[in-house]
Amino acid sequence: MKFTILGFSHPAAYDLGLDINDLAILRWYIDFKESGYMNKKVIGGKEFYLVIYEYVLEYLPILGMKKDAVYRRFKKMCDKKIFMLISASLLLDIETDISIFAPLIY
């Protein structure tokens, strides 16, 4: 029997303190990244992918979250070393609600 939720190891997710909403967002990110449609930027040889929080909400309305809650979920995953974050406002030199993430683990 596999102990996975949305394709992720349940024990590993539990050990990292991730809940089902975190896993749904992570699944969305991976699926979107793998689709080839997600905008990416190579910085220092590492691929970073653009995340627009409104898109997460559009594709995952079942989460019932607001934009700032989605940001906090991504930030939590950065704190857990799942993602590395670069602020798009720093990179693009504009004020924006967009962030750029590089996956560190799956």
Rank of each mutant, 00 (worst) to 15 (best):
residue 49 Y to C: 09
residue 88 A to R: 04
residue 23 L to F: 06
residue 78 C to L: 10
residue 10 H to W: 13
residue 6 L to S: 08
residue 40 K to Q: 13
residue 31 D to T: 04
residue 58 E to F: 14
residue 29 Y to M: 05
residue 84 M to P: 05
residue 54 E to N: 15
residue 30 I to F: 04
residue 41 K to A: 10
residue 7 G to W: 07
residue 15 D to P: 04
residue 47 E to C: 12
residue 73 R to A: 15
residue 67 K to M: 11
residue 74 F to G: 01
residue 100 I to R: 02
residue 73 R to E: 07
residue 87 S to K: 14
residue 57 L to V: 12
residue 24 A to S: 09
residue 34 E to Y: 05
residue 42 V to N: 08
residue 68 D to C: 09
residue 64 G to V: 14
residue 87 S to P: 11
residue 35 S to K: 02
residue 51 V to D: 03
residue 30 I to R: 05
residue 92 L to S: 14
residue 54 E to Q: 15
residue 25 I to H: 01
residue 85 L to Y: 01
residue 35 S to V: 00
residue 99 S to Q: 09
residue 56 V to N: 00
residue 18 L to H: 06
residue 36 G to E: 02
residue 60 L to Y: 14
residue 102 A to F: 00
residue 90 L to P: 03
residue 21 N to M: 14
residue 70 V to Q: 00
residue 64 G to S: 04
residue 80 K to H: 06
residue 52 I to H: 15
residue 76 K to F: 14
residue 56 V to L: 03
residue 72 R to C: 12
residue 2 K to G: 04
residue 31 D to K: 02
residue 93 D to V: 10
residue 1 M to D: 07
residue 75 K to Y: 09
residue 13 A to G: 07
residue 2 K to H: 13
residue 26 L to A: 00
residue 15 D to H: 09
residue 71 Y to V: 06
residue 74 F to Q: 04
residue 18 L to Q: 08
residue 15 D to S: 14
residue 99 S to Y: 03
residue 97 D to M: 01
residue 74 F to D: 03
residue 82 I to N: 04
residue 74 F to R: 02
residue 24 A to K: 07
residue 88 A to V: 04
residue 50 L to F: 10
residue 23 L to H: 03
residue 94 I to F: 01
residue 83 F to A: 01
residue 13 A to E: 13
residue 51 V to A: 06
residue 82 I to K: 01
residue 47 E to D: 13
residue 79 D to A: 13
residue 27 R to C: 02
residue 64 G to H: 01
residue 81 K to Q: 13
residue 53 Y to C: 15
residue 69 A to V: 09
residue 76 K to C: 08
residue 104 L to C: 00
residue 8 F to K: 14
residue 61 P to C: 07
residue 67 K to C: 07
residue 94 I to Y: 05
residue 43 I to F: 01
residue 18 L to N: 07
residue 81 K to T: 10
residue 96 T to R: 02
residue 21 N to P: 06
residue 99 S to A: 15
residue 75 K to E: 08
residue 101 F to H: 04
residue 39 N to S: 15
residue 37 Y to S: 05
residue 78 C to R: 02
residue 13 A to R: 13
residue 14 Y to V: 11
residue 106 Y to F: 09
residue 5 I to Q: 12
residue 98 I to V: 15
residue 94 I to E: 15
residue 89 S to N: 09
residue 27 R to E: 10
residue 2 K to W: 11
residue 47 E to I: 10
residue 98 I to S: 08
residue 12 A to T: 09
residue 51 V to Q: 05
residue 84 M to G: 03
residue 46 K to M: 09
residue 41 K to Q: 12
residue 72 R to A: 14
residue 34 E to W: 06
residue 52 I to R: 15
residue 34 E to L: 09
residue 34 E to Q: 09
residue 99 S to I: 11
residue 37 Y to G: 01
residue 73 R to D: 04
residue 4 T to A: 06
residue 77 M to H: 03
residue 69 A to S: 15
residue 24 A to R: 06
residue 46 K to N: 05
residue 29 Y to V: 06
residue 68 D to E: 12
residue 8 F to C: 12
residue 40 K to A: 11
residue 28 W to M: 03
residue 25 I to T: 05
residue 20 I to V: 14
residue 17 G to N: 12
residue 93 D to P: 01
residue 9 S to Y: 03
